[in-house]
Design a protein around this nucleic acid. Structure first.
Length: 373
DNA sequence: AACCCGTGGTT
DNA sequence: TAACCAAGGGT
């Protein structure tokens, strides 16, 4: 029964057994009914796990329902037009997630006969499937006893087991995976992993954990020592860079608007936008000249910016855009057929067919309000 | 390892 | 309100 010195968690057999019983009982009685819990279809489980990365359950639910209705099977997604896929993801953020997912789903069709692989090695090789997602899909869809360590699991276990390592360091995840391997139920890995996350989402919350309602209270070393609020340890700061941007709503004589498809890599990859560029300076002249030269360089159009149409702020995880919006018109156009593939003239109604990031959806709103008002 | 990659809710 | 946070992964 005694713990060995090389076991840093001091997890004896009876502790593990109690841990599993308490968690699994609580989960079976308290789990939320969510769309992706209707069945264990590996494709649906996979889609949900990708959507849930850094994204709240309440946000994901409507997206998941729409997405699985548009692309009911893995094959439907594999053969779908990328533009349509991005459109279904519009507003969810981290758009590389869905481009990687479609890449991975194609790989499953080509290399695995359309069946989502059920081994750690194979599934981890798929684009966009990291350590967490691999473990989540394997355990939930296939019942494989693999750890699925996300932010919830690190928070919950750091408190229960009093682990004080800095969870912002990548290596720290390995410590929690080791802990889960010792604790996980081999009878029901799916409920065990989901139970840990559910506990983190409902009871063991970041700011004010509901310890008095917690089924794990008697097993919790953090609660025992009154230090649950100090955990998990998370160091490191995030700085948000500010970028002054100028964007143009440029109209042709027949009422079309100029839009641009962003490059296939980097921020908001493959999403559409209104022509815009970062600028330096303080006054309107700086805004105007920056946008004018940008448009001229990109598509060889000469533009006249007529009036300021608005100002928008948009905050990303690591960046803040301060967007000054100008309305203008095209003076001289290059020959019609010379517009590059990633530039388009579209009517205002047609804008709805293209995937725009939220920052530029705000500009669309301005356009429509101006047309109505 | 450190930085990039979105968005919306909470405190 | 600014900072923090959410079922992370790629490079």
């Amino acid at each position: 029964m005694n713990t060995t010195s090389n076991n840093i968690f001091s997890l004896d057999v009876s502790y593990v057994k109690q841990f599993q019983n308490q968690l699994l009982t609580w989960y079976s009685e308290n789990k939320r009914s969510l769309p992706w819990r209707e069945n264990q279809d590996p494709y649906r489980v996979w889609v949900s796990e990708i959507m849930l990365q850094q994204t709240r359950v309440d946000t994901v639910i409507p997206y998941f329902n729409r997405f699985t209705e548009l692309f009911p099977t893995l094959q439907d997604l594999a053969y779908a037009d990328e533009e349509k896929v991005l459109k279904a993801w519009e507003g969810l953020g981290y758009y590389s997630r869905v481009r990687n997912l479609q890449t991975a789903v194609k790989e499953v069709c080509e290399s695995y006969g359309g069946k989502v692989p059920d081994t750690p090695k194979e599934i981890s090789g798929l684009k966009g499937v990291g350590p967490y997602t691999a473990g989540a899909v394997l355990s939930i869809a296939y019942g494989v006893p693999e750890p699925a360590v996300d932010g919830n699991v690190m928070r919950v276990l750091s408190r229960i087991l009093l682990i004080e390592e800095d969870i912002s360091k990548p290596k720290t995840r390995l410590i929690f995976e080791k802990a889960v391997r010792e604790l996980i139920s081999h009878e029901d890995p799916s409920s065990f992993n989901q139970g840990l996350m559910e506990l983190g989402a409902i009871i063991c919350t970041p700011k004010s954990p509901a310890c008095l309602l917690c089924p794990m209270r008697e097993l919790c070393r953090g609660f025992e020592s009154g230090r649950q609020r100090e955990l998990p340890v998370k160091l490191g700061k995030t700085k948000v860079r500010k970028a002054k941007m100028v964007a143009g709503v440029l109209m042709s004589e027949d009422g079309h608007v100029l839009i641009h498809k962003r490059p296939s890599e980097g921020l908001l990859a493959n999403m559409w936008e209104f022509p815009n560029t970062e600028y330096v300076g303080e006054n309107k002249l700086a805004e105007i000249s920056a946008l004018e030269s940008y448009v001229e360089e990109q598509v060889n159009y000469e533009v006249t910016l007529e009036e300021k149409a608005g100002y928008i702020e948009h905050v990303f995880s690591h960046l803040k855009w301060e967007i000054h919006i100008w309305q203008g018109k095209i003076n001289s156009m290059a020959e019609d057929g010379l517009l590059p593939d990633d530039w388009k003239w579209v009517s205002v109604d047609e804008l709805d067919a293209y995937p725009f990031p939220v920052s530029h959806q705000k500009i669309i709103r301005l356009i429509k309000e101006a047309l109505i008002g």
